[in-house]
């Protein structure tokens, strides 16, 4: 049943269709799998942390000020993504779109800084093929960065659909799910920031 009739109008729009409920629950399960994925990558990173032979030490090349700005950009984008869902609940398409654009801009800022950081590191002699530490560094941050880029493309695609179809249980579900994804990336980044950059500065 694609759209069940007589639903409680107080139910959030994204939960009003059967398929919406299934998709949102399924997405939570998918996020569980993503946790397992990132956990494995973190484990790999910690195992290979001491493999710094033949390359610069992380504490020599990390620029903590840069990373703190990146962290703030992503944290704020998560907050604005939450605000866009708030506007969705109020059925205010315009406000929602504005917050989504702001979210995307913060995300783009984050990505820009991450790419410049990578270029800087490579310039300093810390590339993917330098040693095991840098291999796992790029694996971890790169997987996260790839997720962020895909998330941005996805949000743009969903915004396009909202523009065309307006708000309905289907588009609301997509907005909601993509914002869950965005929050998840923020959550992962907190661990990246702490265990890669902060510990890397001390270690």
């Amino acid at each position: 049943m694609a759209h069940s009739t007589n639903v409680d109008p107080n139910t959030p729009l994204e939960y009003q269709s059967e398929i919406g409920k299934l998709n949102i629950f399924g997405f939570w399960v998918f996020l569980g799998a993503e946790v397992a994925l990132f956990a494995t990558i973190f484990a790999t990173f910690f195992v290979l942390e001491s493999g710094t032979v033949g390359g610069p030490l992380p504490s020599e090349v990390f620029d903590l000020k840069n990373t703190i700005i990146m962290t703030l950009l992503l944290l704020i984008s998560s907050f604005t993504s939450g605000l866009s869902i708030n506007e969705l609940r109020r059925r205010n398409v315009k406000g929602m779109m504005v917050w989504l654009v702001i979210t995307l801009l913060f995300g783009a800022g984050f990505l820009y800084m991450e790419i410049t950081e990578f270029l800087h590191l490579i310039h300093e002699g810390a590339a993917m093929g330098t040693n095991a530490y840098w291999s796992s560094f790029y694996l971890l941050t790169g997987t996260h960065g790839l997720h962020v880029s895909l998330g941005m493309l996805w949000i743009i695609l969903v915004m396009f659909q909202v523009k065309r179809q307006g708000l309905n249980p289907d588009t609301a579900k997509k907005l909601f799910v993509s914002s869950l994804y965005w929050h998840f990336l923020d959550f992962v980044w907190i661990f990246v920031f702490t265990s890669v950059y902060l510990l890397g500065m001390v270690g």
């Binding site: 710094t52 993917m128 330098t130 095991a132 291999s135 694996l139």
Partner: peptide, 23 residues
């Protein structure tokens, strides 16, 4: 990890470059 090691020259499992085959 192994695909990267074989195709893109990373060192997850190369002992001499700090990697660990037992991983």
């Amino acid at each position: 990890l192994m695909t990267f090691d074989r195709l893109f020259g990373t060192h997850f499992f190369t002992l001499t470059a700090g990697g660990n085959p037992m991983l």
